[in-house]
Design a protein around this nucleic acid. Structure first.
Ligand SMILES: [Mn+2]
Ligand SMILES: [Mn+2]
Ligand SMILES: [Zn+2]
Ligand SMILES: [Zn+2]
Lengths: 150, 150
DNA sequence: GCAGCAATGAAAACCATTGTCGTTATCATG
DNA sequence: CATGATAACGACAATGGTTTTCATTGCTGC
């Protein structure tokens, strides 16, 4: 039911137990290029007929994040997760349209950036320069889900 | 009771009503260099003898953020707010020790960065290079409050 | 003064996340 | 294969920051 051969060794290498639930969560994560919420992972597991509880999804994501297999951050007020590549990198997250992009280059000297929140070029030009100061809360558009990079 | 002369014009310019509660919130924000939570603002208002409710604090912060007077973002799972300077800038936020620094320079081409989450130099060197991949959740230290910039 | 509308305060609702606890799975060992 | 130790699971309750509801109050312009 689960592609054990593919994800099992990864969990072993990370030093955490191989369980069917973790393997399932990994499969769901692998099916998405972009970050997904715990809630979403759980829903897709239900669709597959798995009986895994939401609590367990949270714990699986937490343990695998802890182990360095999963990259986690907060997007629009809820936690999102994605499979972690080997290289160090950071995310650009647009607070207006929800776009997420991955970048490799170091951007700040003396600081290892992981998640960079701001406004993408598209939304920047679309925003008629009205605000006195840039803000972070209250998206002006309605961002449906994490969207494509660029 | 409130330094009306100082903050009144700011609210008027922003196009929102001048209320005693908003003036009080502005005074509390002005008393801090670093971002404070709604809860914290409320507590300090209580200390001053104000009867302002937490709900109103949230609404005042929301309206002033909307109006561009306040800069808001999320820190360690809760919203934090601070008075917004006139110049565009971004914050460096260390997810390990909670340090917040402000920077002016643009750091990413084609993206206006507002909040940059990552690991500061101090915590980076302290972290014995064990993790396979950098993560964002689960601070390894216990970060008490927003701390000083560098 | 009065209609109209925004702002307030208290309480309840919301909702993602975490804790509890009894049960089950995993793994090493005999 | 049986056993015991330990980690993980599942269902559910609890938590905590934030938002909504709703009745009430306070401006604002007429
Ligand atoms: Mn990533
Ligand atoms: Mn700022
Ligand atoms: Zn955008
Ligand atoms: Zn730090």
């Amino acid at each position: 039911m689960v592609d054990m051969a593919r994800w099992g060794p990864m969990l072993e290498t990370a030093g955490i137990r191989v369980t069917s639930q973790r393997l399932l969560v990994l499969e769901v994560l692998a099916a998405h290029r972009l970050p997904v919420s715990a809630r979403r992972v759980h829903a897709e597991l239900q669709d597959r007929g798995a009986t895994t509880g939401l609590t367990t999804v949270y714990r699986a994501l937490a343990s695998m994040t802890e182990a360095g297999l999963v990259h986690a951050f907060t997007h629009m007020g809820e936690g999102v997760y994605r499979l972690c590549g080997s290289a160090s990198h950071h995310h650009l997250v647009c607070r207006v349209c929800g776009m997420v992009a991955e970048r490799q280059e170091d951007i700040v000297d003396g600081f290892r950036a992981e998640e960079v929140y701001g406004v993408c070029a598209t939304c920047e030009s679309a925003e008629s320069g009205s605000r006195r100061c840039s803000t972070t809360t209250g998206a002006t558009a309605d961002p449906p889900e994490v969207t494509e990079s660029r």
